Simulated scan of single mutants.
Amino acid sequence: MKQMPGIMLALLLAVPAWLLGQAVPLVGGPVFAILLGILLAGWKRPESVEPGLRFTGKKVLQLSIVLLGFEMNLHYVLQVGGQSLVIIVATLSAAFLTAWLVGRWLRLPGDTTILIGVGTAICGGSAIAATAPVIGAKTQDVTYSISTIFLFNIVAVFLFPFLGHLLGLGDAGFGMWAGTAINDTSSVVAAGYSYSDAAGSYATIVKLTRTLMIIPITLALGLYQAKKSRQAGEGFSLGRVFPLFVLGFLAASIVSTSGVLGETAAHFLGETGKFCIAVAMAAIGLNTRLRELLKNGLAPILLGLACWAAVAIVSLLCQHMIGLW
């Protein structure tokens, strides 16, 4: 199995990170894992580990989310998802409006603006990858957008838990904030579980609800592009943009709610999912090249910062209005 060397390397970093996270729960295993990965990212490593690192950063992360579903009660999932819907709509609107205004001010290409706006509003790199073929984006636009979003994902893992404690957010408040304001699923899960297990569970549910917004948004963009050109929607596939791990998470939640597994087995699978998060974050950290991200230019970074700040502030304001914070 060609992925095994990379998986083992990520696992090797995840074990001490997990132990450090147990000793310092305020920081948490996922944060230690991505930090260890970033510190070793410049190390000249064998080419044989690369397939496994890519596999771990994507597939193991998705597996971890499915496993977390075994600790979720479906009634709780539906309740939290319903509560977060208003805030999700508000943050989506804030991201797209900010992207349009700031993108025009910075004179960025329209596709770059759309991709950064979608990545900030919905689910980071996954949303960008799903949207790019729909709007016919160039490779350069996709690279700039993913690099920008990923830069703020890394910052969020470290900054959000610190700000959450500073603001005095409870578990539900921080989970809602992380789930609606952090770009990528990996960073949401890492920041949430670094804050607390309850906040991590809440943030994961909110983020998965938010991820579902990729379907109506991408459909709308596809219809818009179809009006401009017959070729614009050729790359669009509903099966491709729908994140199948969400179905796995929901299936695990149904099993957990039914009580078939029993509390001990469900807890074990949930804890395994949390460890898998650390493994995935180690792989993501090892594939991070901060210096290369900064070479892409200042304008996309400024747009990403503006969208990110708008979403974070609007999320907190909405929580304050509805009394969650």
Rank of each mutant, 00 (worst) to 15 (best):
Trp100Lys: 15
Phe96Leu: 14
Arg104Met: 12
Thr120Phe: 06
Ser93Leu: 15
Ile88Phe: 03
Trp100Ser: 14
Gly103Leu: 09
Ala121Asn: 05
Leu101Met: 13
Leu115Asp: 05
Ile116Val: 09
Leu108Tyr: 07
Ala90Met: 06
Leu85Val: 03
Gly103Ile: 11
Ile88Ala: 04
Leu108Asp: 08
Arg107Ser: 15
Asp111Tyr: 03
Leu115Ser: 02
Thr91Leu: 04
Ile87Ser: 13
Gly124Val: 00
Val118Trp: 06
Cys123Gln: 05
Thr113Leu: 05
Gly124Trp: 06
Thr113Lys: 12
Val89Arg: 00
Ile114Gln: 14
Ala127Phe: 04
Ala94Pro: 04
Leu106Ile: 10
Leu106Val: 09
Leu92Cys: 10
Val118Gln: 07
Leu106Met: 11
Cys123Ser: 03
Gly117Ile: 08
Ser93Pro: 01
Leu85Ile: 03
Gly117Thr: 08
Thr113Pro: 01
Ala121Phe: 00
Trp105Gln: 13
Thr120Ser: 12
Trp105Ala: 14
Ala121Asp: 10
Trp105Asn: 00
Ala127Met: 05
Ile88Lys: 07
Gly124Phe: 04
Ile88Met: 05
Pro109Lys: 08
Ala94His: 12
Gly110Ala: 14
Gly117Gln: 09
Asp111Asn: 14
Ala127Lys: 07
Leu92Gln: 08
Leu97Asn: 08
Thr113Gln: 12
Thr112Pro: 06
Ala95Ile: 13
Thr112Phe: 07
Ala129Gln: 04
Ala99Asp: 07
